[in-house]
């Protein structure tokens, strides 16, 4: 936010927010009808947006013989739970792996990006700007190119088809993003806080761990959420680097239903439905923190 007006506006926003934290900028006294109208409109938009998701659920419940019925069935009235039966029986280990991979990616991303963000935001070394630009560019490398390069390295090191290997690969999606986010959030922390700690004789590492990290809770939640979501839905790395072996994530579990000649679509869709439930819950829970985190990051003195 280099525009003076914007940064000034922000500063004021901070005060405003302190006074009434849950207040939305556009909120104005409005009639009850207007409120209802907005809710109705919101419901409508959401319904349109989620129609493909509904269709996915519909297909997951459809019998093989009705999949291409013309005209298509709007409701799976004469449906089947075959897909779900297959998923419940077979997919749970994959869900477990996805969970481990997701959490592992979150941990690795945090460990790598938080100190880097602190250094870039508060210690400002020579060459920091260049590093930030490299991080920006790093996000531009297509995943498939990364995956091909990784394959050769992983083969040599024997981490192909292992969970740590996949965590490492998945983290490459999130680490540049994480560093940039942490940099932004941590530059918002007042210098006085750090100086006080330094004067008290704390090392920079100690300052980072016991002063910076605790006040960066929002940034940690934001980065964690994105790292988790990317790892959860990653397919390119998983299929290239973890195509074999015992521990495969849910995006590959779907391949149980994609044979070399045949695909079981109701089971594929059912897998997606089942797989998205834990992630959706996580999202709804984290939603509050994320909104708060993002705002806090944008608002700084």
């Amino acid at each position: 936010m280099t525009a003076a007006s914007a940064s000034q506006g922000r500063r004021r926003a901070a005060h405003d927010r302190a006074a009434s934290p849950r207040r939305a900028p556009h909120a104005r006294p409005a009639g009850r009808t207007k409120q209802h109208l907005k809710t109705a409109l919101g419901l409508f938009f959401t319904a349109v947006m989620l129609f493909p998701v509904y269709w996915m659920i519909n297909v997951s419940l459809t019998k093989d013989t009705d999949m291409r019925a013309d005209p298509p069935r709007l409701l799976p009235l004469d449906g089947t739970l075959e897909g779900y039966r297959a998923v419940i029986e077979q997919q749970m280990p994959y869900l477990g792996t996805s969970l481990i991979v997701g959490l592992g990616t979150v941990a690795l991303t945090l460990v790598l990006s938080a100190p880097a963000g602190f250094a870039l935001a508060k210690l400002r070394p020579k060459g920091g700007g260049a590093l930030s630009f490299v991080l920006l560019i790093a996000q531009m490398i297509p995943g498939i190119i990364m995956a091909m390069g990784f394959y050769a390295i992983y083969l040599r090191l024997g981490v192909l088809n292992t969970v740590p290997g996949l965590i490492l690969a998945d983290s490459t999606i999130a680490v540049p993003f994480g560093v940039l986010i942490f940099t932004a959030f941590m530059s918002g922390i007042p210098d006085e806080l750090i100086n006080a700690a330094l004067i008290d004789g704390a090392t920079r590492w100690r300052t980072f761990v016991s002063v910076i990290l605790p006040v960066s809770r929002n940034a940690i939640v934001t980065v964690s959420l994105f790292a988790f979501l990317w790892a959860w839905s990653d397919f390119v790395f998983a299929s290239t680097l973890d195509g074999g072996g015992d521990a495969q994530p849910i995006t590959l579990g779907i391949y149980q239903y994609i044979g070399n000649n045949n695909q079981q679509w109701n089971a594929i869709m059912a897998t997606a439905v089942v797989a998205s439930i834990p992630a959706t819950l996580l999202l709804i829970i984290a939603q509050r923190y994320v909104a708060a985190g993002v705002t806090a990051g944008a608002v700084k003195d």
Binding site: M49, V53, S233, F235, T251, T271, L283
Partner: peptide, 8 residues
């Protein structure tokens, strides 16, 4: 929609 595997 962000949570779904792209293939789906």
């Amino acid at each position: 929609p962000w949570l779904l595997p792209l293939i789906v």
